[in-house]
Design a protein around this nucleic acid. Structure first.
Lengths: 116, 116, 116, 116
DNA sequence: GTGGTCTAGACCACA
DNA sequence: GTGGTCTAGACCACA
């Protein structure tokens, strides 16, 4: 795993793990790898993993059982809402950016269809 | 003008000024307000204005006439290319983000049409 | 029985059992359920039950007859003193917390009367 | 400043600072001492101060101006609500604890009036 | 073995 | 000077 310099490692890591949850790599109720394991997998300090997981815990995507591990929430709704919120937020931001560049929705949709 | 804490002020400022150029508030060949004027207008340190203008100069959107001021490029193509590049970049990033969330293009377009 | 993550399970458990004694669910001289039974009832590790009962034994609320089980003290005074001590301690802590928040006794009493 | 072992230092520290805000030692809009200064004052590692201040920021009691410092919120309501919420929470917890010990409100009030 | 805390200390961008 | 991040590594309670 390679991290870039544009945002803190811990945020990039929490983002990766959030996607893993959204995409079902870690399923509802699954135990995540331990802090130490993740720190080895991603080659970062355990403290950095803690901070990343703290973000996910703030979002209620995971919860902690002390001495036992960290688990994906059992509440499917939390995951679905997170996904939906993220998608809407990204869309809103993108559309408003494009509008401030002078594009209207029709043009925006055209650009997306052309992309790649 | 209010700046947030998510990215450096100088980048937010250069972004605002770039939009002002793209949208024709400052037209081809126009002289920009002086660093000091901008620093007053935006209530930021003159050093921050300098850095922001440096960004625009790197993009060739503006050029400096020493002792005379800073001017919007006279080359329309530079502005058009900048606009197009920005739009494509934002679109690419947005689409790839949405795909990693599990959406396909059809769904993306639908979300955009629904937005707001 | 659900335990939270704010304090160790063994303390939460000893607290619950202490209340059971104070409130007469387990009466003077009663035999408590065995460690194994309690561990099943509360769905915790037997070690955790042991530790919880150890707390109660330190407080002299229970005593052990080896090979026979653990019993609620036969000394009513111990239970009464425990109850009184607990109540005073909680009150002292609460009042001092509220004072450090700027409330005086009159206001504290008013808040209590309003509670719920 | 002395910290005890019952809860993490960073929480004790954030608690102390929250009280300082509630009690007006740091007033609305005031700049707090820098992270480094606090770390010297309280003889803890700057990282620990960061974590403590992070708690206060989560509560919106303070906000950060990058490169400039951390400031008490300018929103009096946030502080008032925090104070009220804290007081209500403590009261609720205290009363429910006392009730589970078998005391009724009248007895609780009597204990408070007798306290100290 | 699990998560959590803390320190010492380095390094960074920004204003 | 300001806040923020990160590492290395120690230490802790708990189950």
């Amino acid at each position: 795993m390679k991290f870039n310099n544009e945002s803190p490692i811990y945020l990039q890591l929490s983002h990766v793990l959030a996607l893993d949850i959204v995409n079902g790599k870690y399923k509802i109720g699954d135990r995540l790898p331990s802090v130490r394991e993740l720190s080895v997998i991603f080659k970062v300090n355990p403290n950095t993993v803690q901070k990343a997981l703290g973000e996910l815990e703030n979002l209620n995507l995971i919860y902690t059982e002390r001495t036992n591990g960290k688990f994906v929430t059992k509440d499917k709704k939390v995951i679905d809402d997170f996904l939906e919120g993220l998608a809407k937020e990204k869309t809103k931001l993108y559309v408003s950016d494009m509008k401030s560049l002078g594009f209207n929705k029709k043009e925006i949709v055209k650009m997306i269809e052309r992309d790649e």
